[in-house]
């Protein structure tokens, strides 16, 4: 955090009375940005492009899977490439999903509940992702 001022959508001045964390106009890595909408747009398109090959890879792998018992799936996920690809898939899925959910919440739910819900979805999403990644490497 470098303490730069963060622009909100409507105004052209920063609000020194608000702590940086009071703005939700962050990109996904919590970097304050002068162009929050642009960062949102970039992360959404970037994650969409990344999800195309990784999502298709996962679905084809599952459709081609001969069996779905533990003795087949665990060794499949334990290989270096598959565990790496699965980690990338789940992470980009989380980024893309949180950005999409944020837009839906912003469209239908008014403040202050809106801000709370966006934070809650981010918190839950990141918690689930961390648990999933730990599981991948615990196998």
């Amino acid at each position: 955090m470098d303490g730069r001022c963060v622009l909100s959508y409507g105004g052209d001045c920063c609000r020194p009375d608000l702590a940086l964390n009071d703005y939700l106009d962050f990109d996904i890595v919590n970097r304050p940005s002068r162009e929050p909408g642009l960062q949102h747009w970039r992360w959404q398109r970037g994650s969409a492009i990344a999800l195309t090959p990784f999502g298709l890879w996962f679905i084809f792998q599952m459709l081609l899977m001969p069996d779905f018992d533990y003795q087949t799936i665990a060794p499949w996920l334990a290989t270096t490439f598959n565990s790496f690809a699965m980690t990338v898939l789940l992470t980009t899925l989380l980024v893309h999903s949180l950005l999409g959910l944020q837009v839906v919440i912003e469209d239908y739910i008014a403040n202050p509940l809106q801000r709370a819900l966006i934070r809650i979805t981010r918190f839950i999403g990141i918690a689930i992702l961390v648990a999933a990644i730990i599981s991948i490497f615990a196998i």
């Binding site: 665990a74 789940l90 899925l93 989380l94 999933a132 599981s135 196998i139």
Partner: peptide, 14 residues
């Protein structure tokens, strides 16, 4: 479904 997918991976670890 993404939450379900993550849950599926977690059960694999459990």
């Amino acid at each position: 479904a993404a939450v379900g997918l993550a849950g599926w991976v977690i059960t694999l670890g459990l």
